[in-house]
Design a protein around this nucleic acid. Sequence first.
DNA 1: ACAATAATCTAGCGTTGCTAGATCGTCAAG
DNA 2: CTTGACGATCTAGCAACGCTAGATTATTGT
Lengths: 164, 164
Amino acid sequence: MTIRRLADEIEYSQPVLYSHFENRDAIVSAVALEGFKEITAALEDAARQASARGSALKNVAAAYLGFALGRPALYDAMFVLPTDLRFAVAETRPELRAAFDALAAVIAPFCKDAAVVTETFWAALHGLAALERSGRIRPAARDERIARVVRAIAGAGSRAPARG
Amino acid sequence: MTIRRLADEIEYSQPVLYSHFENRDAIVSAVALEGFKEITAALEDAARQASARGSALKNVAAAYLGFALGRPALYDAMFVLPTDLRFAVAETRPELRAAFDALAAVIAPFCKDAAVVTETFWAALHGLAALERSGRIRPAARDERIARVVRAIAGAGSRAPARG
DNA sequence: ACAATAATCTAGCGTTGCTAGATCGTCAAG
DNA sequence: CTTGACGATCTAGCAACGCTAGATTATTGT
């Protein structure tokens, strides 16, 4: 979406958008924050609806990919378009923190130092989404890849990492 | 880079660029293909310089992240800017195939059906690079995350996947 | 009723990707 | 040596982009 088209969409002119937001990045950031709220809810739902203990990871992973592939424009705002949203700094936006925590919650039962494993889990999910969307890996093998990631955490993940 | 700036750089006007390439995406694709050649060489080097059997995975993973973080513009051309390069189709470009094979070569000793595991490995590496570059995960924990990914493959990877 | 203030728009700047038409250089045929 | 064809290159421009200054309209307090 361009600012001009967005302005047309809401039936206002561009300057009213720029009086509410500093620039394009700020608008994308606002959309991204909404996206993080949504994905947090989706991940928490997926974790809740897991029947067995082991299925939570798989459910959450599938929900993450479902979100990324089902709402590509929103996911782009959250992860590929330039924004001023940083995570690993002091004043992390709560919406980002909440999404991370939703992932960490399903990781926690499997390891002590969840932070590193959650980051790695998140990276794997993001990579799977990105590569599948750009046609670099086979969509048909998605479930097998998810199973791989889940097994890597549930199977070998109970030990603490090297310098945990 | 913009086409205008690129045209200035090579000291020609824009139309000569457009007489050699169909459009911007085609130019980015050409750059991306060069990038795939380079990363293939870097990954093969990393695998060769591995002393022990287990260190190949770690070396290659570190080399991948080093490439992605050290040449951000080139990596963008390969993975985030729109191109017409598809992987999982019939006529896959050989440069893409070679990069994938370089990853698969270090995966092969650890599992029978390397394709799925290589895709997952690649996705994890790409996700780590993307999230670290956008400031979403802690740069200081990079080595621990790499160790996690490596252990997931070397440790639990010797069994064949579910529907291998 | 009138002035002050807030909200909104028109019009424009500089930049982008891309292209049509003019211009220039090269070279074979006469 | 001239002419004409052909290919390469450039100038100039289009539509769309992010963004903004200045004019204009609406709203409000007195």
